[in-house]
Nucleic acid binder design. Structure first.
Length: 261
DNA sequence: ATGGTCGATATTCGA
């Protein structure tokens, strides 16, 4: 089974790219973030025609929005309002076999890495704290966490870790809280099971770069974690960089995990 | 050191 996560930055604008991605990479399940689309306008019919007959969608006007598109049945679909807000950022479903799939869009956190002067940064830290406390309270059983987590935790998840110390997404407090959430139930960072920690690995390149490809100042913001009971089923993970060069791209590319059924 | 670009929506906000 191929499982993909992708911050698509408008599902309506990028529907042609989504269909091309589905046709070329054949993912069985696609988890989207930043769909920016109220549910009544979601292109459900066209995606059903492409084989994604099982869908869980949770969108809102203009911002946020998450969705799970699947070729296999989804059950027990749930949404979660976090940090006292109504943001559409966390959606889950159970897969055949029983694993719980959580699709999460962590707040980006604004520009200034100061929780007092910048409420968006505080919201981001609170969101991670809330999740870290929440996972141990859930029933045992196989779990998969995917999404745009908006944090690049490791030294080689960014182009220059020292220069990124004060840049939101790679600050010490974010990295610390991120690892605390990861350790809350022994989550496994699946992409790093297949790419050594001393090799650069990115899933996002800013729109603002003059030449994103040549500069290659990327960050690994998008993640797929699994619980230890799934570790022996992992078969490969990759981040198809070529999508960043497709016409009218998202600033994120998908992360794909292959799991033995 | 600065500003650079997107998308949705409305002429600004969030990324």
């Amino acid at each position: 089974m191929k499982l993909a996560t992708w911050n698509i930055n408008s599902v309506r604008l990028r529907l042609p790219l989504l269909l091309r991605f589905a046709a070329e990479y054949l993912p069985d399940i696609i988890c989207l973030q930043e769909t920016k689309c109220p549910d009544e306008f979601f292109p459900a019919t066209k995606l059903r025609a492409a084989g994604y007959t099982h869908q869980a969608i949770w969108g809102q006007k203009s911002y946020n929005g998450v969705a799970i598109l699947s070729r296999v049945p989804l059950t027990d679909i749930q949404t979660y309002a976090r940090c006292g807000k109504q943001d559409c950022r966390h959606l889950s479903a159970h897969l055949p076999g029983g694993a719980a799939l959580h699709n999460i869009y962590i707040p980006a956190g604004g520009y200034e890495a100061d929780p007092i002067g910048n409420p968006k940064f505080q919201h981001k830290l609170d969101f991670v704290d809330e999740l870290a406390a929440w996972w141990p309270q859930q029933t045992a059983g196989a779990k998969i966490l995917v999404g745009d987590l908006n944090i690049a935790p490791l030294e080689h998840d960014v182009w220059d870790s020292k220069k990124m110390q004060n840049v939101v997404s790679h600050t010490p407090i974010e990295r610390e809280k991120f690892l605390a959430m990861q350790n809350s139930i022994d989550w496994i960072d699946s992409a790093r099971e297949f790419t050594p920690h001393d090799q650069k690995l990115y899933s996002w390149w800013s729109y603002r770069a003059t030449d994103w490809d040549a500069a290659n100042k990327g960050r690994r913001l998008d993640h797929i974690w699994v619980t230890p009971d799934l570790k022996s089923s992992l078969r490969g993970a990759h981040t198809p960089r070529d999508l960043r060069a497709w016409p009218q791209p998202s600033d994120h590319v998908p992360v794909i995990l292959q799991i033995q059924d």
